Each structure stands twice: as structure tokens, then as C-alpha cells.
Simulated assay, not measured.
Amino acid sequence: MGAVTSLFVHKMVAAAAGPGVDARAILGLVGLDPDIPPDPGTMIAATAYYDLLERIATLRDVTDLPLRTGASMRCDDYGALGLAFKAAPTLQGSYDRVARYARLWTTVVQYELRLDGANTWFMLHRAGPRRLGMRLSNEATLASATAIAREVHPEGRFTPLEVHIAHPAPRNTDAHTAYFGCPVLFGSDRDALLISPGALAEQNRLGDTGITRFLLSHLDRELAELTGAADVTGLARDAIARALSEGQPRMDMVARRLGMSARSLHRRLARDGLTFQALAEDTRRELAEGLLGDHRYSLAEIAFLTGFSEQSAFNRAFKRWVGTTPASYRRARVAGIPAAATPPSA
């Protein structure tokens, strides 16, 4: 089960507080004491976080909640990582640090900087069904990434070229356009900010090379401790699941997202008797089986989300995995027939 820092919970609840929304009571639902200051190191289950956001959505209009939450974020809220973001010489360096060290405050989201011609995508990857709580969280994450970029800009001005959000648009998107100051494209194939090379090259107003060396050394130690203690196979499985909608993930890409070399990842998987290829295939199968149990996803969408360019290829692979077609498997799930009892289709 993935986890997120309780900092996000505190910020969301504070932004939502008002008539009809008792902030203290809502924090208590996830076991947080409202009288204790937020600690980025305190984690809660991602599912509990999504449940909390969906609870708030029954009490008030949440259209602009992610934007107001994002606008409230400051670098200092993130502890050493926020200081490292602020101390980087350029915004490129700041976002590089988010991509590398984000695992210190979340196990459900991974970040990536990806070149696209002269521009760069700052992308977030989060696996799983796009329930309302996840959608709100994704919007808040993009809004937060924008807010802290504006904080370090010499004149407080940072505007992406475009904002892409994978889920459908709310009824009114005026607040989104006003906040980001650029086109906001819902129903995209990604959750990301598109950033110009000029914006990434802008010198941060608080950049400090000396502080940067100290902070990165500290963060590297924390990351090494986390990686050493973590279930690397489980982390790799999560990274593969998040990357599948972009096609068959490569080991070097997954290793980079985990903050290690491809050779190290290969060695850690081998200790568990696994190869990267076998783990990727098993992850695809598990994700496909889970999505087939959710009728909000068509077979074509599930094929895409599990890394297949065509539904026919997905059908063949799934039949090889479980002995039946995806459609037959879904019908059996509805009928309550155990997967093992599903007869192979002709």
C-alpha cells in the first residue's frame, strides 16, 4: 500500500476549512492530531488520503480546492528537500531534485523530466484507478510544483507553456486557467507541466552552491537508507505500473526513477530470484486483472494502461497469462467465478 506525507493532508484540509467542513474532525479521521504541527516525515496511506478528499467533496465544491492547496505550498514546508529545491542554481536543478528525491515524501508518485524538442515535460506518474481523490491530489501536485517554482523565481513569475491533466475537466475550468496562466488541457495522456528552456534556465533568486552540496549530501544519505531498507522489488513493481501507459518500460528508466543504476537494480532483483523482464510481465498481468474488475475502463483503455499499442496484442498476451480472453475473464469476475475456474476460451 502506498503512502503520502501528512503535510499534503494538512494543507488540503486547511484549504477546505470553512462552513460545513470541520478541519479538526476531518484530520482525526486519518489519525492526525490537529494540534501537532505538520511533519513531512509522518506518512499516511494513500487510500486514506483519497478517502478524506472524497469526504470533503461531499461537504463543499472542490473544483478550486487543489489550486488553493497548491498556492499555499512553500519550499520550507518540504524540509531538506524544499531547501534543496530553493538552493538549486536554476529551476532545472530544482525540478531535477524533485525527480530524484521525491521518494522521501511519497511512495505513490514518481516524477520525471522529459525533453520534447526544445521544451521539457515535468511529469508525475501515479498508478491505479483515477478515483476522485486521486484526481484532486494530482491537480494539487501540479499546482504545488508551480507555486514553489514561482517562489524561487527572481521576480516571482513562473508560467508553464501548457498544463496537461489526464482526467476529464470539471464543469468550470476558469480557476485553473487563471491559476496556471496558460492553457490547461484536460483529458490528456499525461499529468504534466510543459516548460520552456528559458524558464528552466532562469537563475533562482536563492541559489547557493555551498548550501546545495551540504543538502544533497544529506538527501543522498536519506535516500540510500530508504533504498537499503525498502523492498526494491515492490518499488520496481510500482514504477513499472506507473510507466506502462507509455509503453513497455525499460530497466534503465525504472532504475533511474528509483535513484539507482540499472546494474544495481538487476542485482537487487536477482537476490529475489527475479529478472526485470519477468517482473514487468507479472506487473502487467496483475494490473490488467485489477482493471478488468472495474467496469469504468474499456478493454481498449486497459490495453493502453498496461503498455500495449493495440487491443489485439493485449488480448493475446492476457490469454497466454491466464488461459482466457480479457472479455471472458471480466464476465467471470461479474459472475463470481474464481479466475482459476475460468475455462480457457477457444
Rank of each mutant, 00 (worst) to 15 (best):
H295P: 14
D189T: 15
G128H: 09
F214K: 11
R242C: 14
G181M: 00
P249D: 07
R126D: 14
A335C: 10
A346M: 13
D64L: 00
E202N: 00
A335R: 15
A327V: 11
D231Y: 09
N119Q: 12
G293V: 03
F180M: 04
D272G: 08
L161D: 07
T342L: 14
G117D: 12
A17R: 12
H125R: 14
D294F: 08
G273M: 09
T58R: 11
L206G: 00
D64E: 11
L235D: 12
K86A: 15
T58E: 10
G210L: 08
L305S: 07
G187H: 05
L65I: 06
S6Q: 08
A288R: 05
L7W: 02
F304M: 07
E155K: 00
A3W: 00
D35H: 06
V62H: 01
G323D: 04
R114E: 11
F304S: 08
W105R: 07
M251T: 08
N138Q: 11
G210H: 11
G198D: 05
Q277N: 11
G198I: 03
R330N: 04
L235Y: 06
L194T: 02
I240S: 09
A224E: 15
A303R: 03
A46L: 12
D51Y: 11
D294P: 04
D96S: 03
D252Q: 12
L83H: 13
S261D: 11
R55E: 14
S245V: 13
A16P: 03
L194S: 06
L29A: 14
M123W: 08
V254I: 15
D191T: 14
F186A: 09
P40T: 00
G247F: 06
I165D: 02
L52D: 07
K86D: 08
S345G: 03
P34N: 05
I26F: 07
L269K: 07
A3T: 03
R150P: 01
M12L: 10
A84Q: 04
S188M: 13
R330S: 06
P343N: 06
S245D: 12
I211D: 06
T325S: 12
E162C: 05
A23Y: 10
A243F: 12
Y49K: 06
